[in-house]
Simulated scan of single mutants.
Amino acid sequence: MRLDLADLRLFLCIVDAGSITQGAQRANLTLASASERLRSIEDAVGVKLLERRPRGVVTTEAGDALVHHARLILHQQELLKDELNAFVSGRRGTIRLYANTAALTEYLPEKLAPWLARHPRLNIDLRERTSADIVKAVEAGLAEAGLISDAVETGTLQVRPLEPAPLVLIIPAGHPLAASKSLALRDVYREPFVGLAAESALQEHIDGHARRAGFDVSFRVRMKGFRGLCEMVSHGVGLGIVPERVANRHQREGTYRKVPLSEAWAQRRLCVCFQDWDGLSSPVRALLEYLLGGGE
Rank of each mutant, 00 (worst) to 15 (best):
L5P: 00
D7W: 08
L8S: 04
L12V: 06
S19V: 11
I20R: 12
N28A: 09
R39L: 15
V45L: 15
L49F: 04
E61D: 01
D64V: 03
A65N: 01
V67K: 02
R71Y: 04
I73Q: 07
L74R: 00
H75Y: 11
Q76V: 08
E78I: 05
E83R: 13
I95H: 06
I95C: 10
R96G: 06
N100T: 06
P109I: 10
A113H: 13
L122W: 01
L122T: 14
N123C: 02
I124H: 02
L126R: 12
R127E: 08
R127L: 13
T130F: 01
S131C: 09
I134C: 08
A137S: 12
A137M: 11
G141D: 10
A145F: 05
G155S: 09
T156I: 09
L157Q: 08
L157T: 05
R160T: 07
P161C: 00
L162P: 07
L167E: 14
P172Y: 10
P172F: 05
G174W: 09
H175M: 07
K181Q: 07
L185S: 08
Y189S: 13
E191S: 08
E199R: 12
A201D: 04
A210I: 09
S218Q: 02
F219D: 11
R220F: 06
V221C: 03
R222Q: 09
R227C: 00
G228N: 13
C230F: 03
E231I: 10
P243I: 00
A247K: 03
N248S: 01
R249T: 04
T255Q: 14
T255C: 01
R257G: 01
K258N: 08
K258H: 03
S262M: 04
A266H: 04
R269Y: 10
R269L: 01
F274Y: 15
S282H: 04
L288G: 08
L288S: 08
Y290R: 15
G294A: 07
G294N: 12
